[in-house]
């Protein structure tokens, strides 16, 4: 029989993960990360903190760098270092904003830029450019057992904590003043949430690197927002989109020899662009189609 399709779908889409263990581990790691961090991205987006995620991703760099220089490529040391640096920047920027009456985005910008600069200097002073790339873009294709366990642990902790703080998190995103009128419990929820953001970014940088981990967090939420109108479907859709993009990105990376984490993020960006154009809710094409036709001008009146 004439083979109409020149590629075997199995070879193209599935075999890389069944034939190569490093690909299977990469997929497992990235999908685990997706399940924990995509819901967090949804709340970051709804709280208009999308870029805060990006800033925090940069802020964890010096902690990871110091740990890397002291202990080498130790997953645990780099995780603890990153966590401490991220939480320190988060707390310093919040406290400065509160004490000096400055806006929190300006204090966060100042501290994360300082943190990032310090991180780059630390790495380039002692390490090589390859080390820097390693931290910036991760090693999805070389995830060891400790890294995988860390990703799974972060995912479980994220889901449990999110379930606990879900209601104050929703009300705090929807109407922060109203939540504040019931006392200070909402602040604890926000604090726990910011901890989850940092923890997921730190876990994410083992797989995707500090710069790209935030992509897996924010982009699925932005995409899901174009396709669903209620919170729960948006969260589920963002997890699905995230996992699917990891699979597609890993395949792109495998077949074309592209760097892994940028491939995953690029797949997400392509999905985002598609959503902008074709979303049934507020996509550009749909709004053009839905626009009422201009009333035709009566020629008699014009003449």
């Amino acid at each position: 029989m004439l083979d109409l399709f020149p590629f075997n779908l199995n070879t193209l889409l599935v075999a890389p993960f069944t034939d190569y263990q490093f690909m299977a581990r990469a997929l497992l790691g990235c999908v685990t990360l997706s399940i924990g961090s995509a819901p967090i991205g949804v709340f970051l987006m709804l709280r208009r903190l999308s870029l805060t995620g990006d800033a925090m991703a940069h802020a964890i760099l010096p902690g990871a760098a110091i740990a890397y220089l002291l202990c080498g490529l130790s997953v645990i040391a780099m995780t603890l270092g990153g966590l401490m640096a991220g939480l320190l920047v988060a707390m310093l920027s919040s406290a400065t904003a509160l004490k000096t009456n400055s806006s929190e985005d300006s204090t966060l910008a100042a501290f994360y830029l300082g943190s990032l600069a310090l991180g780059v200097i630390l790495i380039s002073a002692k390490g090589s450019n390859i080390d820097l790339l390693h931290v910036l873009f991760g090693t999805a294709l070389a995830l060891d057992n400790v890294a995988l366990i860390l990703l799974q642990l972060t995912c479980v902790v994220s889901l449990v904590v999110l379930a606990i703080i879900y209601r104050p998190l929703v009300l705090g995103s929807l109407d922060p003043d109203y939540l504040a009128s019931f006392g200070k419990s909402g602040n604890w929820a926000h604090l726990a949430f910011m901890f989850l953001v940092v923890a997921n970014l730190v876990a994410g940088f083992h797989a995707l690197g500090t710069l790209m981990a935030v992509g897996l967090m924010i982009l699925p939420a932005c995409i899901a927002r174009f396709w669903a109108r209620r919170l729960e479907p948006i969260i589920l859709l963002s997890i699905g989109m995230s996992a699917l993009s990891c699979w597609a990105g890993l395949l792109l990376s495998f077949h074309f020899g592209l760097p892994t984490s940028p491939s995953i993020v690029l797949v997400l960006v392509i999905c985002y662009l598609f959503s902008i154009l074709f979303s049934p809710l507020n996509g550009l094409f749909c709004s053009v189609l839905a626009r009422p036709a201009q009333p035709s001008i009566n020629k008699d009146l014009c003449s």
Binding site: D175, R230, L231
Partner: peptide
Amino acid sequence: PQQARIEKGFPID
């Protein structure tokens, strides 16, 4: 409050 800081775009009915 007078101008409630409500996020009207929040996905909720």
